[in-house]
Design a binder for these strands. Sequence first.
DNA 1: TCGATTGATACCTTGACGGTATGACGTACT
DNA 2: AGTACGTCATACCGTCAAGGTATCAATCGA
Lengths: 295, 295
Amino acid sequence: MTYSLEQLRGFVAVAEELHFGRAAVRLRMTQPPLSRQIQKLEAAVGVQLLERDNRRVRLTPAGYAFLNEARRILAIAEAAPALAKRVSSGMRGVIKLAFTSASTFGILGRILDHLDLDLPEVHIELFEMVTREQLDALTAGDIDLGLARPPFDPELFESRLLHREALLLAVHEDHPLSELRRPVVPADLTREPLIFHSQQKARYFYDLVVSMVPLAQERVIHTVSQVITMLWLVSGGRGVAFVPESARLIGIPHVNYLPIATPIVDPVELHLLWPRRSDNPALPRAISALSFLMH
Amino acid sequence: MTYSLEQLRGFVAVAEELHFGRAAVRLRMTQPPLSRQIQKLEAAVGVQLLERDNRRVRLTPAGYAFLNEARRILAIAEAAPALAKRVSSGMRGVIKLAFTSASTFGILGRILDHLDLDLPEVHIELFEMVTREQLDALTAGDIDLGLARPPFDPELFESRLLHREALLLAVHEDHPLSELRRPVVPADLTREPLIFHSQQKARYFYDLVVSMVPLAQERVIHTVSQVITMLWLVSGGRGVAFVPESARLIGIPHVNYLPIATPIVDPVELHLLWPRRSDNPALPRAISALSFLMH
DNA sequence: TCGATTGATACCTTGACGGTATGACGTACT
DNA sequence: AGTACGTCATACCGTCAAGGTATCAATCGA
């Protein structure tokens, strides 16, 4: 035997009015079915909830306790549809956002700030992934938004350029190149020990540097995938490294950042990307909340 | 338009099975009415909760959010009857317990400990009241149990003796009476400044001392209602006072407690009392949990 | 003692829910 | 490609439960 939400509404009304007739008016029904509702409810609960003679109605202690539970149930039951609608409209929900480690530090903060402001009921889950992992996770539906570097398959993904920045050469502050008064050119680096990007894990930077700064790679002494690791090696005097301008924000000590002569200015691109087919209603809202960041 | 608990149960089953047929089996019904239940529920909520084609069933984001709410509702709805029954049986509830200030410190701790142990779901609310106030509050139903001193009207209240203790004379440790090697008698006090009980607020002690220690009251210099106040005055060398033995527990410095020759030993009584007519189901349980303390 | 108030009961009608039968549609296997 | 199967939706029917009206029973106050 169980009970219904209608019975709970009836019980709450009677408990508040302590009068079957007035409670029935409030519920827009007549008194007899309300009396039966309460009887049925008491039978279902297995306990007398209301003490009533022909003159007055009182809550029993059990009725008082049950009233609390009934109110909690009804409160949730009445709020739930509006909640579901907010989720459905994308005003509330979860966005899973992946980013590529240190290089996105600068813009990630602004992204989170604006999402928080525009969509306070949307919770952002953060994942650190390299671009390759992001593409797989977006396709699988494991994440909704990526902060990554090209190229992307335009069939599967939509993307917007968020940010371009310069490629700089990180050198130790005591290094003779720090004295250079002009942009670095490949010829300056023929004898330098190079800390280079992993071709697998940091393919974007690998390809970018190879195309921007044609030089022999015999001098590569470390192969690294994370910018922050490169900077620590430079800070320790182990060589020089190509890093995006935003690496400056990390604040590693004893490192100078030198301009490089590149065929195009600010060649390092950062994109926001998302799957063309997503069923997360919060995604379009998040994208338009971030549109002011896009170029 | 609203929805029913049965619809929620149906929805939760389908959401968990992601299959109408299996969910229907679990609910011991056939598949067609379950399909209609879900349709009705979606109409009531105003949002599509399940994405379904003829091959597979999936939760929409809104459906996922609504599933959480549905589970919360059903969890409360299923637990509520058992809760109400525990309240009705007195295993769970609230006991409002009044006590008479400092003199009950010793036994109050033991009472609370044992109630906590025997009736962990019964919450004890404490009130500090003098005996007179306790009687009124018990009659009005504002409190359930009192810890007070006689007399009580046996028509209205049931009571049990919890504790008898000696009446002692509190004196400053430098006072000459401290050197006495026998019980104090009235004749010892003819010239002492007396800190005495208020006849209104501390009537029990007033009457008790007057009957136990017949003496002229010309020497009364302070009239006080609380034991602790008396002790501070004694500690400050302002006089001597009659206090119950448990006053020692308060630990006021520089006070000695001297035995008094009284017609009966341990004349100070402390009773547990409660109204004969109470509708608090936790009260009988509390009383029997405390029966081992009674004489 | 009688009338008014209030919750409970009797009886009726309606509508909602579950069951059976069947349809529509898509998948998988031969 | 065709057919059999699986799966959710729809049509139709019977039952049962919920609400309405009329009335009863009990209590209180004048």
